[in-house]
Simulated scan of single mutants.
Amino acid sequence: MAQFADFDSRGYPMVDVRTGYGQWVGSYERTVEDLMDLAVLARLAVPDWASVARAADLGCGTGRTGVWLRAQGVQAVDGVDLTPEMLALAGAKGAHDRLVEADLAATGLPDGGYGLVVSSLVDEHLADLTPFYREAYRLAAPGGLCVLVGLHPQFIMAAGMPTHFTTDGGEDVAIDTHLHLVSDHLTAALAEGWQLAEMREGVVGDEWIALKPKWSRFRGIPVSAAYVFRKV
């Protein structure tokens, strides 16, 4: 099994998810680019966002994804996150009907209550994908979708870069990062009963290089991936 440690070229000190995002919260939205996740979600053809009565936003963070979902016509969104500081920002945005502080593998949300389960920029923090896909399957209504968008494993391997932030004191700190191949996602999801409906990849191109000129050496490499699974 591929391990992120085999590709880590930064060697930053690493902290757990709750600690890291609690410290990153103040600058998070100035750091994360919409090209990484929201632009890839916008390219998906299978989800009919406006037909979704209620979505579960797992790893909702500061509420970026919830705001985007509501803008696409999703009628109601419940959010779950492990970090209270992130949930406070999400609450201030007002896009979520309900916010829950919980682990993604045990959300406490109702069985079969959601036409859409979505997760953005979370999977690299999961040591094992199976609990996520199992919980998402429990939450989804029959015929519902699970949409996951995250860092592409090829980019993680090429860049050797963990998810990281810069502290107020100027120190670069990494957040617990795991490497999951595309086949790892498919194997875990299919084993829980999901059916693959669509997959999209976002590559480093002119838009990315305009934002991050140093990424020119990654031109053509996929930086993020979106998976759409259907509950059948």
Rank of each mutant, 00 (worst) to 15 (best):
G220A: 06
T177H: 08
A141G: 07
L139W: 05
S120G: 10
S9V: 15
V173P: 03
Y12H: 04
M86L: 15
G11Y: 05
L151K: 11
T163K: 01
L148H: 09
A158Q: 15
T107N: 00
G79A: 12
T83K: 01
P153A: 07
V223C: 04
E85N: 04
L151S: 10
A95Y: 05
M161C: 11
L38V: 14
H96F: 06
D128T: 13
C146E: 03
D81M: 09
A188D: 01
G11E: 01
D78Q: 12
V25D: 02
A210Y: 08
L148M: 12
G61I: 15
A42Q: 04
C60Y: 14
Y137R: 11
E33Y: 12
A102L: 04
R64L: 14
F229C: 09
A76Y: 02
E33C: 11
S224A: 11
G108T: 15
I221H: 04
V74E: 02
H185D: 06
G115S: 07
V149D: 00
A39M: 07
I221K: 04
D103N: 10
V25I: 09
L69G: 10
D97L: 15
D16E: 07
P13F: 09
V117M: 04
R134Y: 00
R30K: 11
R54G: 00
T65C: 14
Q75D: 08
T19R: 13
A95T: 09
L99Q: 11
P222I: 05
V77P: 05
D176N: 07
L58W: 01
L126T: 07
Q195S: 10
F155R: 11
P213R: 10
T130R: 08
H178T: 06
L82F: 13
V117R: 03
L129Y: 13
M36V: 06
V223E: 04
V77G: 05
M157F: 05
V117L: 03
R64D: 07
A136F: 10
D6N: 13
L41S: 03
Q23F: 01
R10T: 01
S27V: 14
G94M: 04
V46N: 00
T177S: 14
V52P: 07
V173D: 02
S27E: 09
V17C: 00
M157E: 04
D184L: 04
L38R: 01
L145W: 10
G59R: 13
G160D: 01
T187S: 15
M86Q: 04
A225S: 12
G26S: 12
D48H: 11
V182L: 15
V117T: 05
V40C: 02
A191D: 13
F132H: 06
L41D: 01
L58T: 00
T83S: 03
G193C: 10
F165C: 06
D78F: 10
R18E: 12
D81W: 13
L104G: 12
A127T: 03
A188Y: 04
D37C: 15
D123W: 03
L87G: 05
